[in-house]
Design a protein around this nucleic acid. Structure first.
Lengths: 267, 267
DNA sequence: CGAATAGTGTCTTTTAGACAGTATAAT
DNA sequence: ATTATACTGTCTAAAAGACACTATTCG
């Protein structure tokens, strides 16, 4: 039987063809105490029982016929306890990539569609249905390197190929902050320029020049818009009150806010 | 039965859970006669029989347990007749996005992982196994607009949600040319700066200033490296012979080659 | 020859970044 | 008072873009 006919039959009778499971996994990032954190769950069942993993689960394809972004939002809501009408509406969610290599799940062929989420500071998560625990974990504590991302198990912390997915998500996040105003998705509805700078510093892992950053943000059309208000108090250790801003209407930053020192990544 | 247990059982007995099919679709782009073309196949079977579609097919998940990029390369090879050792090795292939909304295939739930390919000029394709026809089609002839991409069937030419996938692939291609040296993937192994400029003009749909483009390309480290040779003849309608270049070792362009006039897309 | 094209020179404007300086508020 | 901080001013270097110009080759 030629491939075409086999495929055709398979389409009408899926059980006659290769069994595949489709899941969504979410790389949810937030800033806590000035450091970038990722939402992780501790697996309560094999495989990788007891290890940390990205929150995720199977896509409901028949019962609810949910779309992929809906599935990602649902997984995020289940782990964070957020309601769709509430704080979840302020979370930025975008598709990251799909991971489908054979052998990434020992049980069967699993295709995982990964999503990337940028969230403002959220309460501590509660453990979801099939997780033993859930927590915001500082990204820096995971010992992620390119080598660790490529060889599963090297970090000894993340299940499946989740180190690779997280590494890809972090790079996407760093890049997104260059060309889009999505750093504001990590902030409260009203924020100061120094708070925005702290987001960039946490995601990029680099200190930025406060004065130049300030002027740059204000010079990009549509990045932020002033509220006319200021904070109630000055900085922790002194300084004047900072002006408050809201996210502007730009969807792209032009000119972009490029991160410094990328020489090493070019070749 | 709680979700977790159901999921767990499903993982061990996939037939007990929702049936899903996973396919790969390829947005293969090339430059012909100075215009951007996409590889399309005419469907030889329902649904959408007789309509144009992106080349694609089911992922072999058990028989060969192929990885997703391998599946995309296989689909591309089947439609173009290219061998993996030959010209296919010079084609750039990257994952684009995954499309999995319910109802995008009337037969069943289908998750499509889309890939984006940049190819140098290739021979005309032969019709693959389940296609009635295959051809390089000028992108400009498809009447793609944002409205057409959102409502399937509006262009009256592309099956499924392939207008949306193609639109996303084109935007990705335009963006990739800004930040990476991948325009060279559309060229022969040795090329001239004006040929490279023609790639940019075809993908961006804009004329570029020849002199400034020339200097800019040469000023970006690692973009191109000279061969010391020149073309045998001058331009079609006169002009000196052009120097020949190869792709350099840069993986990112720094500084980037930004396309002009993006004011309208910012908001 | 005339026209088209490859490649370079030069000038202006924009942007990035270094650095300094002033005013404000916490301790 | 001291110190940290928000924000602004200024200068320099890098880059983008407009324009002009020369040299070469085709028809």
């Amino acid at each position: 039987m030629p491939d075409s006919e086999q495929d055709f039959l398979a389409a009408y009778d899926p059980h006659a063809y290769d069994p595949v499971a489709v899941t969504v996994d979410v790389v949810a990032l937030t800033i806590r105490d000035g450091a970038l954190h990722v939402l992780l769950v501790r697996r309560g069942a094999p495989p990788f029982e007891g290890m940390w993993a990205l929150p995720g689960g199977f896509v409901r394809s028949v019962r609810d016929a949910e779309d992929l972004p809906d599935a990602a939002a649902r997984e995020l809501a289940e782990e964070t306890g957020l309601s769709a009408e509430g704080a979840l509406a302020r979370v930025h969610l975008e598709q990251l990539a799909t991971y489908g290599g054979p052998g990434r799940d020992p049980r069967m062929r699993v295709i995982s569609v990964a999503y990337l989420a940028f969230a403002p500071e959220l309460p501590d998560p509660r453990a979801g249905s099939d997780a033993a625990d859930a927590a915001w974990v500082p990204v820096g504590s995971l010992g992620l390197t390119e080598a660790a991302a490529q060889r599963p198990g090297t970090t000894r912390r993340l299940a499946f190929d989740h180190a690779r997915i997280l590494t890809d998500g972090l790079e996407r996040a760093r890049s997104k902050l260059e060309y889009t105003p999505l750093a504001t998705a990590f902030c409260a509805p009203e924020f100061t320029i120094p708070e925005l700078r702290a987001v960039y510093e946490a995601v990029w892992g680099e200190e930025l020049h406060a004065g130049n950053f300030h002027r740059k943000v204000l010079s990009v059309p549509g990045f932020v818009e002033g509220t006319g208000e200021t904070t109630e108090r000055g900085g922790r250790r002194g300084g004047p009150r900072a002006r408050l801003y809201r996210a502007g209407d730009a969807r792209l930053l032009h000119p972009a806010l490029l991160r410094p020192s990328r020489e090493e990544e070019v070749r």
